[in-house]
Each structure stands twice: as structure tokens, then as C-alpha cells.
Amino acid sequence: MKHRRDLHLLAASAAFLTLAGPALALDGADMMKKLAAATGVGGTVITFEKADVEGDTVTASGVEVGLATLPGDKLKIGDITFEGVKETEGGGYYAKSVAFPDVDMKQEEGHFSARDILVQGLTIPANAAGTTLDDILLYEIVRTGPIVFNLKGKDVFSIESTESDLGREDNGFTYDANVTGLKIDLSQVDDASAKDAIDKLGLTTLDGALTMKGSWEVESGKVAVDEYAIDFKNVGRLNLSLDFSGYTLNFMKSLQEAVKTTEANPNKEEANQAMSLAMLGMMQQLTFNSAELRFDDASITKKALDYAGSQQSVSGDQLAQSLKGLVPVMLAQLNLPELQNQISAAVNTYLDDPKSLTISA
């Protein structure tokens, strides 16, 4: 009797697991379709051949990426592996990490490569056409290793690594991005006059970094770009900060609809004109709060004055004095005496001792 009860229990358990299995299993194809829908909102087209599921890992094979505006051009990605995948409330998906294959592209004399591409904390919305924070494709961290563009056997552009972090808050997001080991080789510039200027200014090789920091308050649409800076050794650091309001989810949706309308119009000239008018209308919905542009010199100003002066058979100091007298004349057209005086005073101070120059609005 006991053995019979055990057999019944075993059969019932097996039946339960058989019925429950399909319900608990991840639907890899559905996840990829929703990912494609989410990226499609911004004009990016993702296609795939199949999506295999093993536990909480989804492997999408035959992935290709393109732009809706360029239907004939697609980048073959290959296999993408999503690990730690789970379905979220409402039918979306969350992946703990997403690993991409290395990119290695060759065309004529050019060679582009990008390695160690990884996304962490990817949230795929169930309904990308919605108007809430839960309807946006989000990530927590995006990292890459070396990125190199090689031309005629020489690395003309390279990056050691990149990292972008996105922080979700109750009222919006914060973001922080860094590009390290940014190198640009200008030694292969062919134009004789440009090459002469590059050599004399010491710009044959540029070595620097790029940083970005900011936030977005979704309800008010307030976007604060606290830092957007590029810093090159022996040149200087240029930083832009910007603050404006009105960039809400509804504004984003209007912008996306305008882009879709433009893409659907076969008459590209007419479509571009309509898009320009639409952009002018949408820009009026934004409110400018503040902006600042700052340059911290790292020796390039003196070199630039000396070089420009040599082209006019004068010294760098003589050219600087000429600029001091020219600036007020150029600004007189503005007919804003107070602003003219502020700018002239700032330019004079900078030319006398180049350290930093800030333009604020």
C-alpha cells in the first residue's frame, strides 16, 4: 500500500512539473522582440535569427543592428549572451549582464575594433510605446575595453576604456560617463598647411580623456549637464555645462513621432523641411535656464598666438595686443555696452596671462 501511495505521489509530482515547466521557462524570442521594439523607438533596428534559453541565460544568435534611416546597411553582431534574466512584473525583462562579441571590421585601408563590451542591469520594457519610466529601455552600467580605428596600418584613433553609469531615482536619473586613454594621431594629415600648423603647435599626437556628468528630472523635464569635458595634455580642458527644462517623456514621444514621420516620407527634401519646422516648434517648448563654457589652458594659447603671429610676420605678443584692440570693435555691433565691456575685460586678462576663460549665460 505504501509503495502504491509513493507511485501516485511521484506521478502527481511529475505531472505538476511537466505542466509548470513551460509556464516558468523564459521566452527568449519574446524578450528579443521587446528589446527590438524598445530600441526601435529611437530609430535603431535589431534583428535576430533565434534565441535559445538555458536556465536564466538567453543566447540570441545571428543578431544584426542597423538604422531605420539606412535600411540597406546592417552591422553583423553575432551572438549576444544575456545572463541572470528574469521576467519582470507586467511582462518586461531584466538581465543582470549582457555580453557582446568583440567587433572587428575591415574595409579597404581601414580597420575598426572594439573589445570587452558589457552591459550590466539591462531593463527591457514590456511596452516601449508607453509614457512612464517603466516604458524606457534602461541600463545600470555599460563598459567597453579598447576601441581602435586603424588607417593604413597606423592607429589614428584609440580609447583604452569607457564606462557609463545610469542611476535611477524617484524623480528621474543621474548619469556619469568616462572615456580614458583617448589618443588621436594627426601625423597622417595630408594637407601641407594643416600639417605645418599641427607640427608647430605640437598637436601631432593628442592624449586625453572625456568626462560627462548630469541628471534628468522626468516630471519637469529638467536636464542638467553638469560636466561635458574633454581634456588633452599640453592643450587644455574644455568644459560645457548646460541646464534647460521641458524635456519630458511627452516631449520625447513627440520627437520620436516626428522622426518616424520623416522616415516614412519618400520625398526626403520635403521630409527634411517638415522635420526642421517640427523641431522649431518643439524647441519652443524647452526653457533655457543657464549655460557655461570654460577653457583651462595647458600651454596651447601661447603656441597658437606665436603660430598665428608668424603667419602675419609678427610675434605672438604683438598679435595678442592687436586682438585686444580688435575685440571691442567686433563687439560694438551687439550694441550692448555692459556685455561688451565684460567680454573685452575677460579677453584682455586671458591674453595677458592665459589660465582660464569662462563664458556664462
Rank of each mutant, 00 (worst) to 15 (best):
L242E: 10
A37G: 11
D135I: 07
A229F: 03
Q311D: 12
R143T: 13
G42S: 14
D306G: 08
A114W: 06
K233T: 13
V156E: 08
S161N: 11
L319M: 01
R237W: 04
D243L: 09
I136Y: 00
S344P: 10
N265D: 15
E64V: 02
T47L: 00
A36V: 08
K195E: 13
E292R: 11
K96D: 12
G145S: 03
Q321H: 03
D306V: 12
D231R: 00
F112I: 14
E163H: 02
G172C: 09
S360A: 14
T131I: 10
V156W: 02
G78K: 00
P22W: 01
D165Y: 07
L280G: 15
V347Y: 02
A68P: 11
V189N: 09
Q312T: 04
I230Q: 04
V259S: 15
E83D: 15
E49L: 08
T262F: 12
D135L: 03
V53M: 05
L133G: 15
D104E: 10
R5V: 11
Y350N: 08
D190R: 08
P71Y: 02
Y93V: 04
A126T: 03
F112Q: 09
V103A: 10
H3C: 07
M105I: 14
S161C: 01
G72Q: 08
V329D: 15
A68Y: 03
G202M: 01
V189F: 06
Y93S: 08
F82K: 02
E219V: 14
Q342C: 00
V148G: 09
T248E: 06
L201Q: 04
N150T: 15
E270I: 07
A308M: 07
N348E: 15
A14T: 12
S276N: 14
K355Y: 02
A361G: 15
L206Q: 01
S161A: 14
P22S: 07
G130F: 07
N348C: 01
A29G: 15
E140M: 02
D170I: 13
G145D: 06
A128V: 03
K34F: 05
L201M: 08
K33L: 12
E269I: 10
Q312V: 06
Y94I: 05
K74I: 01
V218H: 07
A346V: 00
L166K: 07
T174P: 01
S313M: 11
Q342E: 13
L75S: 05
L336C: 02
Q342Y: 00
V314F: 02
T174S: 05
Q188P: 05
K76Q: 12
K183Q: 06
D134T: 06
V63M: 04
L319D: 08
L201A: 07
I147E: 12
V65N: 06
F157E: 09
F48R: 10
Q340W: 01
T18H: 00
A304Y: 08
L138R: 09
K303I: 00
L255Y: 09
A345I: 02
T301R: 00
D352H: 10
S290T: 14
Q273Y: 02
L75W: 07
G28Y: 08
S313Y: 10
